[in-house]
Simulated assay, not measured.
Amino acid sequence: MTETPEARPIKGVHHGAFRCRDAEQTRWFYEDVLGLVTEGGVVLDEVPGTGADDPYLHIFFRMTNGEYIAFFDAPASADPEWFQRKESFDMHWAFEVESEEALLAMQARINSFGVSALGPIDHHFVRSIYMYDPNGIQVELTCRTADHDAIFAKEKAEFADVLARWSERTRAAKLEKFGAEAIAKRGRAPARA
């Protein structure tokens, strides 16, 4: 696909959002512990689009690049089980810091708040530390290594073959576990001019 603004219209993340158990507890972690800026929040009594009666606070935190993470504090519809720790394959944030020195400084800062930040783990393209937020979501802070871009360039060049081999290797297990309809491609390709 052509690399034009029309072909690739998404310029970045405005926000990713999840539930939180308690807005103040979440504010403490993301603002006090991690140092993000609380941009504010809005209280609404109905769910937009459905009109369902479910009062909630939608709170936003800004990162230095202008992107946000956000949370919904909606106690009436919350399931306490959702706040159990999630496996990292199921859900995690990975936030980037500028350097290895910044990563180690953040690890010391986080630990000083009594939050365990483990690592750093060397993933070759990044080095990372890990912790959990108060909502059971794993949070990773990461910094790029000197080889980051070269590793991604190599992976991009090989990806079509890697994906084809992976799909062939896992197709039977996925068909058995999920069924053909669940893993079928959706929609249709756009018409070509």
Rank of each mutant, 00 (worst) to 15 (best):
E31N: 09
E31Q: 15
E31T: 15
E31M: 10
V33M: 04
G35F: 07
G35K: 03
G35P: 09
L36K: 01
V37E: 11
T38Q: 09
T38M: 08
G40R: 04
G41D: 09
V42T: 14
V42Q: 08
V43F: 13
V43N: 12
L44F: 13
D45S: 11
D45W: 04
V47C: 07
V47P: 08
T50I: 00
G51D: 03
D54I: 02
D54F: 06
P55C: 02
Y56N: 09
L57M: 08
H58M: 14
F60G: 03
F61T: 01
G66P: 04
G66A: 03
E67S: 14
F71V: 05
F71H: 01
A74I: 05
A74H: 06
P75A: 00
P75D: 00
A76S: 12
A76H: 12
A78L: 08
A78Q: 11
P80M: 08
P80G: 04
F83E: 03
F83Q: 04
F83D: 00
E87D: 15
F89M: 13
M91R: 11
H92V: 02
H92M: 05
W93I: 05
W93Y: 15
A94C: 12
A94T: 00
A94Q: 00
F95L: 15
F95P: 02
F95W: 11
F95T: 00
E96W: 07
V97P: 03
